[in-house]
Design a protein around this nucleic acid. Structure first.
Length: 493
RNA sequence: GGGCCGUUAACUCAGUAGGUAGAGUAUCUGCCUUUUAAGCAGAGAGCCGCUGGUUCAAGUCCAGCACGGCCCA
C-alpha cells in the first residue's frame, strides 16, 4: 500500500538504477576518519591560504539534509551526530561517470565523502569532494526543510524524524544524559554505590499508586511493575551497603498529563548515618552543580519565571507554609473544623475519612504548591501521610521529612527513614486499612520487608528525585513528553 | 471523566457565503560549475481523519467515533 506513494516509488526506481550501475545502495565498507565538528572546529578560523596548504584528506559520513543543484556541480549539506557541513561536488573533480551516479542522490540518503575543506565565496567552510559514495538509500523523503516537522503527534510517534530535522530536540536529550551523568558523578564521588533492584515485584510498595499488573507463566504468579524501588534499596542498606542509589524506571498506572508519563525515571539514594537535614544541604549542592554546569551561575529562566538557585534555599514547615500562603490564622492549621471550612472555601472536596494530616496536605497541594516558585524545602510533614518516614523526636505527629518545590512542582522527596520495625508494621497496617477495596495486591503487607527491618537498619536518610521533571526544569521544557524519547501515546490501530 | 481547539498533497499551511481543491517546500522535466530558503521555465501529485445525517450539491453545516493538543477534575 505504501508503494502507491509516487515519492517512494521514485526513490525505489533510483535505487534500482543505481544497482544497475553497480552501486550497492546499502554499502557497508566506508571508512570514516572525521566528524563534521572536528573539521569545523579545526578550520573554521583558518585563512584561505592556510586551507590551500592542507595536504590530508578527510573522510566523513552522514545524512544529506539538502541539495542545491547547478547542472555540472551541486552543493549539499551533510549531517552527522556532531553537526552539519556543506560539501561541493563538481563533475570535473569526480569524473563524468561518478558524477552521473551522484546526481541520483536525494536528501535523506546517507553518503560518505572524501575531500578537503575550502571556503566558498559566501565564506562557508565546505568540503571540496574528491570521492563520494552512497551508503544508504532513503526510500522516504524527509519532512520539509525550513519548517521542519511541526505536527506534535508525528514528532512523538516518529521521534526519529523529529531528531533528524529538529536540532533543538537532540539538544534536549543530550542535556538529559548530561544531567544524569552529573548526578552519577556527584554520588559516586561521595562513595555511593549504584545498584539495580527489581522492576517486577510481587508486592508493589514504597509509594501510593496504582501499579501495572503482569503475570509470570512458569512461576504461575502475578507480578507488578514497580511503583518505587524504595523497599528494595532499604533492604540493601540493611545488608550493609550504607550508601546506595538507583536511577531507573518506575511505572504508575494513573493519569497522564504534561507532568505525568506512565513510566518515568527516578533517582533514589540512601545514606546511612545521615538525616533529612543533611540531605537538604546535599540536594542544594547537587542541583546547583547542575545549574552551574548549564548556566554558569545560579540563575536561569524556566517558562518565563526567573529562578534563583543561590543557596541556601528557603526552608519552611508545611504548617507555616499553609499559614503564610493560605492566609490562615496561625492556630487554625491544627483545628480540623477550621481547615475543613477553609478547604470548602477553596473548592476542595474533602473525604470525611481523612485525618488532620491529609486535610493539611490537600490544602497545601492546592493553595501553597503553585506559589512555591523559587526552590523551597517544605519540612515537618504530617505522620499520617508519610508511612515510611521517621517520626520527629519532639512531635510524633510529624515526621523528619522534606519535599523540594521549584516552579510549583515537587522535585525531590526525602526523609530520615523509619527504622523501627514495630512502628513500620503498624503504619503499614493503618495504611492498608484506610485503602479502598481494590482488586490488586497493592494493599498487601510486605512482611519480608518488616522481617528485614527487624534485623536492624542503621539510621538512614533517603531521597527520591524525579529525573524527567528535573530535566524539564534545566531544559526549559513545558511537557514531560519533550524529555522522554518515546512518550506513551494511544495506539493508532 | 468534562470543556475548548486541531486533523486538507510527503512536509508546512490556505480554503471566502455550502457550488467538483490551492500555495510554498519536496518530487519530476529542461537550463545553469561558489550556492545556501540558490535561480528561471514547465509538469505531476489529494480517501479534505473515519462513519453517518441534512442538502440538488458538503473540505465547509449537524451527529457520533478515532487520534492529538491545552485546560479542568
Amino acid at each position: 500500500m505504501e508503494g502507491l506513494n509516487p515519492l517512494v516509488l521514485n526513490r525505489i526506481e533510483k535505487m534500482k538504477a543505481l544497482k544497475r550501475e553497480g552501486v550497492n545502495p546499502f554499502a557497508n565498507d566506508f571508512q570514516v576518519t572525521h566528524a563534521t565538528r572536528d573539521i569545523l572546529e579545526e578550520f573554521q578560523d583558518k585563512t584561505d591560504e592556510d586551507l590551500e596548504k592542507i595536504k590530508t584528506r578527510f573522510s566523513l559520513a552522514g545524512r544529506i539534509m539538502s541539495i542545491r543543484d547547478f547542472g555540472r556541480a551541486f552543493f549539499l549539506h551533510v549531517q552527522d551526530r556532531t553537526g552539519r557541513i556543506q560539501a561541493y561536488i563538481r563533475q570535473d573533480k569526480i569524473g563524468k561517470d561518478n558524477f552521473k551516479i551522484s546526481k541520483m542522490l536525494d536528501a535523506g540518503d546517507f553518503i560518505g565523502i572524501i575531500g578537503k575543506p575550502f571556503r566558498t565565496k559566501s565564506k562557508e567552510l565546505t568540503i571540496m569532494v574528491e570521492e563520494i559514495r552512497l551508503l544508504t538509500k532513503a526510500l522516504r523523503p524527509l519532512p520539509e526543510k525550513w519548517h521542519g516537522l511541526v505536527d506534535i503527534e508525528t514528532r512523538y510517534r516518529q521521534r526519529y524524524l523529529d531528531l533528524i530535522v529538529n536540532p533543538g530536540v537532540k539538544e534536549v536529550f543530550y542535556k538529559r544524559t548530561r544531567i544524569i551523568q552529573l548526578l552519577r558523578d556527584f554520588l559516586n564521588k561521595r562513595d555511593f554505590l549504584e545498584v539495580e533492584t527489581p522492576m517486577m515485584q510481587s508486592i508493589p510498595g514504597g509509594a501510593t499508586a496504582r501499579p501495572f499488573k503482569t503475570y509470570h507463566n512458569t512461576l504461575n504468579m502475578d507480578l507488578y511493575l514497580r511503583i518505587a524501588p524504595e523497599l528494595y534499596l532499604k533492604r540493601l542498606v540493611i545488608g550493609g551497603f550504607e550508601r546506595v542509589y538507583e536511577i531507573n524506571r518506575n511505572f504508575r498506572n494513573e493519569g497522564m498529563s504534561t507532568q505525568h508519563n506512565p513510566e518515568f525515571t527516578m533517582l533514589e539514594f540512601y545514606q546511612s548515618y545521615a538525616t533529612y537535614q543533611d540531605f537538604m544541604n546535599l540536594t542544594e549542592e547537587m542541583l546547583t552543580c547542575i545549574a552551574k554546569t548549564f548556566f554558569d551561575g545560579f540563575k536561569f529562566e524556566y517558562q518565563g519565571v526567573e529562578l534563583d538557585f543561590t543557596p541556601p534555599w528557603s526552608r519552611i514547615t508545611m504548617k507555616d507554609a499553609i499559614v503564610k500562603y493560605g492566609e490562615l490564622n496561625e492556630g487554625d492549621v491544627e483545628i480540623e473544623e477550621k481547615l475543613l471550612e477553609y478547604a470548602k472555601g477553596s473548592g476542595l472536596q474533602i473525604d470525611k475519612k481523612m485525618g488532620l494530616g491529609s486535610i493539611q496536605n490537600q490544602i497545601f497541594e492546592k493553595v501553597v504548591e503553585p506559589k512555591l516558585l523559587q526552590p523551597t524545602f517544605i519540612t515537618n510533614y504530617p505522620t499520617d501521610i508519610s508511612p515510611l518516614s521517621r517520626r520527629n523526636d519532639k512531635n510524633p505527629q510529624e515526621v523528619d521529612r522534606f519535599e523540594l518545590f521549584v516552579c510549583g512542582r515537587e522535585i525531590a522527596n526525602a526523609f530520615s527513614e523509619l527504622n523501627d520495625p514495630i512502628d513500620q508494621k503498624q503504619r503499614f497496617l493503618e495504611e492498608i486499612s484506610q485503602r479502598e477495596v481494590s482488586d490488586d495486591d497493592s494493599g498487601i503487607l510486605d512482611k519480608d520487608f518488616i522481617d528485614a527491618l527487624e534485623y536492624g537498619m542503621p539510621p538512614t536518610a533517603g531521597e527520591g528525585i524525579g529525573i524527567d521533571r528535573l530535566v524539564m526544569l534545566f531544559t526549559n521544557v513545558a511537557s514531560i513528553r519533550d524529555v522522554i524519547l518515546f512518550p506513551q501515546l494511544k495506539s493508532r490501530r
